[in-house]
Design a protein around this nucleic acid. Structure first.
Lengths: 225, 225
DNA sequence: CGACCATTTGATATGGATCAAGCGATGTGG
DNA sequence: CCACATCGCTTGATCCATATCAAATGGTCG
């Protein structure tokens, strides 16, 4: 479904807009050197604490990274959609595990190869830095979301996803309510109730549980805090 | 503030001085090129959305970065103690404001100078990346802390601070209860109550409200989740 | 000593979690 | 093609951790 649009939009992420050039070039390294791979829905891409051997770029589908806490709860660190680069969250070992949310196609490149290339090509070095920087910014925003109310978290999530998946207002959520709950630090019941409530407020519409129509962006902006 | 900034810019003249430091690590670059500056308790170092012109390294004292949310609440992003480098949290503008928690001495260096140096020196480039990477890791840990219980957050904070400030077990908190609350996403009352409770559990001791003795690390480790 | 600020302690309220059913879509075996 | 099992989601009732409101205590500095 997403494949055609995903390929067309590679390398650009409207909204973040910090360094489109750097992002483009960084993406190119993976585009040029990357090997395509396919992961089925709910299969592991890598595990927490494994050596971070590869860098990935999503071609189609959605990926989640997560950690399972001591008490058994799962916290999702991020969702990655077509165009996003992941597995550069930290040091030499992965801090999070990664799984395919849907059937997913990625491009894979050896981290060591890119790092070696960066030794000689400081354009590549700058791109690696830029990717990490953007990841940091994303983590900070996610982090700020966690101190907001349930309604604000859900609204923020919907606005974010609608901006990131190609298209815009009527869009499809590729992840389950449980995934959303684990991403937002809420329970599935609270996410569900909040969605219903937003629908009653006429802020959104839910033709199906996965399909979202942003019906009143002004109201959503206000509810976003 | 402007006066102090002017002094900072004397530290580096483009085109000069690159050679002698060419093989130094980034932290050392700040040590070598940095201009000392002093900020009084509770004064601003830089504001959110200002251009990120400088990089800072704490020599003495403590710094907090924070954001004020729409509803007026303040969220502290990080505390920086001697040895820490800050102001590399994101892109070309600061995502957070920075203030001195106590009277603080820092070394300041022009960001553009370091970035320019990184163009020619891979080692410096790698160090810039490493600093950003570490910051990302720190943000992720802070983020994971926010989904824990109040007790776990406070215990985690105390263990973290005790590890970071020179010394170890008996150590001094340089920040107020309000600072801690805003860092942990709790209220001042909850932080206070939790501290008292930890004292009753004989896990810690509080000779004064700012002085902390870790009395039972095993118990604290358990309470940390 | 007195004023002020930070911290602690107490009483009550509440947002979201938890426990528990119900419902609708999808798929499977008969 | 239907009956039924399953799964993901929604809805309802109740509980609890932390927030909020309020007051007392302690420490610091003029």
């Amino acid at each position: 479904m997403l494949t055609q649009r995903a390929i067309a939009s590679q390398g650009f992420k409207p909204g973040l807009g910090a360094q489109p050039v750097a992002r483009q070039a960084a993406a190119d390294v993976i585009d040029l050197m990357g090997a395509p791979m396919i992961y089925k829905r709910n299969t592991e891409i890598y595990g927490e604490n494994e050596d971070a051997e590869y860098l990935y770029k999503v071609v189609s589908g959605t990926v989640r990274t997560y950690k399972v806490l001591a008490d058994g709860r799962r916290q999702i660190g991020a969702f990655y959609v077509p165009g996003d680069v992941f597995a550069l969250e930290s040091g030499p070992q992965h801090a999070f595990s990664a799984e395919a949310v849907t059937d997913t196609k990625v491009l894979v490149v050896k981290r060591s190869a890119v790092v070696a290339l960066a030794e000689r090509d400081n354009d590549v070095a700058r791109q690696l830095w830029a990717i990490t920087s953007r990841e940091l910014q994303r983590a900070q925003e996610h982090f700020l979301a966690l101190i907001k109310t349930a309604e604000e978290r859900v609204v923020g999530f919907l606005l974010d996803m609608s901006a990131r998946v190609s298209g815009g207002s009527p869009f499809e959520l590729s992840m389950s309510r449980q995934d959303i709950a684990d991403y937002l630090g809420l329970t599935i019941e609270t996410v569900s109730r909040t969605m219903t409530q937003l629908e009653h407020l006429a802020a959104i519409e839910l033709p199906t549980s996965r399909r979202v129509v942003l019906r009143n962006r002004a109201a959503l902006g206000r509810l976003n805090g």
